[in-house]
Computed example of a mutant assay.
Amino acid sequence: MKTLSIRQPWAWLIVRPDLKTPEERAAAAHQLKDIENRTWLTKFRGRFLVHASKGMTKNEYTFAAEFARSIGVTVPPAADLQRGGIIGSVEAVDSVEQHQSPWYMPGNKAIVLRDPRPLPFLSINGRLGFFECPYALPTNHPET
């Protein structure tokens, strides 16, 4: 299955494993990161696995945490974020050069996301761009 490595805490902001029930996810829909900013467009559409990259500098974490806070989202402490593996899946529904989402950063291109689903952590190495995950994984979580 297609997989994309995303640095933390951005990956956490997409998957939001803290929102356990469909009701919690619906209530917090405006706080879900619905855009993945990139320097490139993609023709890929469909569900892909979210890989949380191993690398994360203190400055990257601070910038992302402050940006999320400006939208009303508090991210977990850096030490609590899973890194170096699959943390969930999400659907790519478009690839655009600009977007009205508060998560869009002007000057970038973006993948438009919907329906994030947390998954149990699976340690695997990431790669640049979309890549094939070497394991068969479920793409949805059990509804609670």
Rank of each mutant, 00 (worst) to 15 (best):
G88N: 01
K54E: 11
E36L: 01
M1Q: 04
A29M: 09
A65E: 14
E24Y: 08
G88W: 06
S5K: 06
I111Y: 03
L122D: 12
V96K: 06
V90R: 00
P76A: 10
A29P: 04
A65M: 09
H141G: 13
V96P: 07
R69H: 08
E24L: 14
L137H: 00
K20S: 09
G85K: 01
E132G: 08
R45V: 00
E132T: 05
L32H: 12
L128H: 11
V90F: 07
E60L: 13
V90W: 06
E23T: 15
A110S: 15
V73Q: 14
M56R: 12
P118G: 02
Q31S: 08
P138T: 03
A110D: 06
H141T: 14
I71R: 05
G129N: 08
A11N: 00
S101R: 03
G72C: 12
A64P: 02
A11C: 02
V96M: 10
K109C: 03
W10P: 01
V73R: 10
P22F: 13
W12Q: 00
V112L: 15
I71P: 03
P118A: 06
A78R: 13
R117E: 12
R25N: 08
P116E: 09
F121K: 13
R16D: 08
A65R: 12
L41Y: 04
N125D: 09
V90Q: 01
K109M: 03
T21Y: 06
Q82V: 01
N37T: 10
F121L: 11
D34E: 07
T3K: 01
R38V: 12
G55D: 10
S5I: 06
L4V: 00
S5C: 11
L113A: 01
P142G: 05
A92R: 11
F67S: 10
L81N: 06
A92K: 15
P9M: 05
A52S: 05
V75N: 00
L128Y: 10
A11W: 03
E23Y: 15
Q100W: 12
E143G: 04
E23P: 11
I86Q: 01
E66Q: 15
E97I: 11
L32N: 10
Q98W: 14
D115A: 07
M1G: 06
P76L: 09
A65V: 13
I71M: 14
I71W: 02
